[in-house]
């Protein structure tokens, strides 16, 4: 069996800016029409009864319950942490969420509130959401969050450098942040709404995975469009290909604009169809969301009680 040009070993592709560019631009292009059609087709899958029950509980377990506002207070974070542990206080069978995601300065509050619950504390860092700060500042941001007890760090990539084609700079920054994370999991936010094309999404995903990301994440939630089904499909395909090539599983997190349980289930269908059912775990797929959780709980209550639920019966946060 002859291979055409032998694929470069992944260790070599990050050796220089030119090699990295050659590798990223050598990735097969994304068929935009095809990706959108595939995502749209999968979105029509009908998930009912027991499968829906399973999907709703799974989606709840995958939620990174998030509050990223300038007006966040310790009180609000504590309330969110309480909700994270018992999303539906009237139903003990309701699973807890995966993590609580806050700004770095509120990490100690979340760590204190979630002690012993098994729920992870995630912090956004590296001058979230724009990522416009000197590297030293970004690394200090990450170290502070990790020291305060964050187990997961959500960093943003330097989109300006990426779009200008300085891939190695982006790569090296992720490597540096990964090192600063220590044992904490690193989620790399690509901000796909600013990357313009699916090809760029695919390249950025590979770039982040090569640099050691544990998760690639679609968006900060501060830019529109945020997560979309085709973008998630492209990222999941990249993650699947990366696993096939290296054996390492990099998770995918979709964030921003996902408010309905129905949308969440559509993402789960795409995960299942793209990466297989062993990917249906909070270790490999997450939803970054705040209002999504209430809709998931409402749909869950509907499946339990048989009557439609009302938003008045769930906490506002």
């Amino acid at each position: 069996m002859t291979t055409t040009t032998s694929a470069p070993s992944l260790a070599d592709v990050t050796a220089s800016d030119a090699a990295l560019r050659r590798f990223l631009h050598g990735l097969p292009g994304v068929d935009q029409v095809g990706a959108e059609a595939r995502a749209a087709t999968l979105a029509t899958r009908s998930i009912k009864t027991t499968a829906k029950r399973f999907a709703l509980d799974l989606a709840i377990r995958m939620v990174d319950l998030t509050t990223l506002e300038g007006q966040d207070t310790p009180g609000k974070v504590r309330a969110l942490c309480a909700k994270a542990q018992r999303p539906d206080p009237t139903d003990p069978s309701c699973p807890p969420v995966a993590a609580v995601c806050v700004y770095g300065d509120l990490v100690p509050v979340a760590v204190e509130a979630l002690r012993g619950s098994g729920i992870r504390v995630a912090a956004v860092a590296t001058a979230f959401p724009s990522g416009r700060a000197p590297l030293e500042v970004k690394l200090a941001d990450v170290r502070a969050a990790v020291e305060a007890g964050a187990e997961e760090i959500d960093m943003v990539i330097d989109r300006g450098a990426f779009l200008a084609g300085r891939y190695l700079a982006v790569h090296d920054e992720i490597v540096a942040v990964k090192e600063a994370c220590g044992d904490a999991h690193l989620k790399v936010i690509l901000e796909t709404g600013e990357l313009a094309t699916y090809d760029n999404v695919k390249r950025a995903s590979w770039l982040a995975m090569l640099a050691g990301a544990d998760f690639v994440k679609t968006s900060t939630g501060k830019v529109s469009p945020a997560a979309t089904l085709p973008v998630a499909l492209v990222m999941l395909e990249a993650a699947r290909d990366f696993r096939d090539r290296t054996g390492r599983r990099v998770g995918v997190k979709v964030a921003g604009g996902i408010r309905a349980a129905k949308d969440a289930i559509r993402y789960l269908v795409i995960v299942n169809e793209t990466c297989g059912d062993d990917w249906l775990t909070p270790d490999a797929f997450r939803f970054g969301a705040s209002s999504l959780l209430n809709d998931l709980l409402m749909q869950r209550e509907k499946t339990v009680t048989g009557r439609y639920a009302g938003p008045d019966h769930f906490t506002l946060d």
């Binding site: 009557r307 439609y308 639920a309 009302g310 938003p311 008045d312 019966h313």
Partner: peptide, 9 residues
């Protein structure tokens, strides 16, 4: 019946 049992009505 769905309207009568609906929690948001």
């Amino acid at each position: 019946p769905w309207l009568a049992s609906h929690m948001d009505v």
